[in-house]
């Protein structure tokens, strides 16, 4: 009996080890781009795009759920071959990894309680506490443009929403689309609203979200770029886009 269990366990390893052509790092805590369902599946815009790109390249892919603040090291160490996690293409990140062309581009924005009356200037946010996800462009942006505002760093975007609802923080800054669909339009987001400008400063916010690859993987980068163009041309991108959003996510 014991031996049978052991054999079954080893078989279990074997099936997961019978690896896909590509392993894709995804996050699973950034709705509607990437979220984990009650049954543990990861779904969302990023996931659909990743699958479409894999299909277009004729490769089998496996999604690897990875914590956001460890996702670049995971790529570098070979735990996965590409990052499809709404990661903005920034100069800082380009120092350690390479990116494909963008696959979408949306601005960053603040949210707060609808009646909070906050203004997005250093004076307007003085004495307020703003939550951001650790290791994001939004952290860099806040540290660069609002150095005197108290920042709270969260492991995931969802935790920042929880603390905003709890009243521990006054505002959250993140991608506008992610917050609109992931929070404002949900039951929990009632009574909360955007305030301030749309932010899209290349120095912080980069040139849109791209797919991260290792610097040594030039071939994969080229293949992914071709695949992005292919799904854009075939209309598949639009189908996925329309499944989640009622506007064009790709940007200008």
């Amino acid at each position: 009996m014991k031996r049978l269990v052991l054999a079954a366990a080893l078989a279990g390893f074997a099936t997961t080890a019978a690896a896909a052509d590509l392993k894709i790092c995804v996050e699973g805590a950034y709705p509607p781009f990437s979220e984990t369902t009650a049954s543990g599946d990861i779904v969302g815009f990023d996931i659909d795009i990743a699958n479409a790109l894999c299909a277009s390249m004729g490769k089998s892919c496996e999604m690897v759920k990875t914590e956001w603040d460890g996702i670049i090291p995971a790529l570098i160490e070979g735990k996965c071959d590409a990052i499809v996690a709404s990661m903005s293409i920034t100069e800082d990140r380009m120092k350690v990894i390479d990116f494909t062309n963008k696959y979408y581009q949306t601005p960053a924005k603040f949210i707060s309680k609808a009646d909070a009356g906050l203004v997005d200037t250093p004076e307007g946010l003085k004495g307020k506490v703003v939550g951001v996800q650790r290791g994001t462009i939004h952290q860099d942006f806040m540290e660069g443009e609002f150095p005197d505002v108290e920042l709270k760093l969260y492991g995931t975007q969802d935790e920042a929403y929880l603390d905003l609802q709890a009243g521990r923080i006054d505002a959250v800054i993140a991608d506008s689309v992610a917050m609109d669909d992931g929070f404002l339009k949900t039951e929990n987001g009632k009574g909360y609203a955007f305030f301030g400008k749309d932010y899209s400063i290349p120095k912080y916010h980069g040139e849109g979200a791209g797919i991260g690859v290792r610097k040594s993987d030039g071939d994969l980068k080229a293949a992914l770029n071709a695949a992005i163009d292919a799904i854009r041309a075939s209309g598949e991108y639009k189908t996925i886009n329309d499944k989640y959003f009622d506007f064009d996510l790709y940007g200008a």
Partner: peptide, 22 residues
């Protein structure tokens, strides 16, 4: 460190996140 406190591990995580290292 998982509830936003910058203890020793929190400092380490912030360092990792800032420089994209593990």
């Amino acid at each position: 460190s998982v509830i936003t406190i910058q203890d020793i591990l929190g400092a380490g995580r912030t360092l990792n996140a800032r420089h994209y290292v593990a």
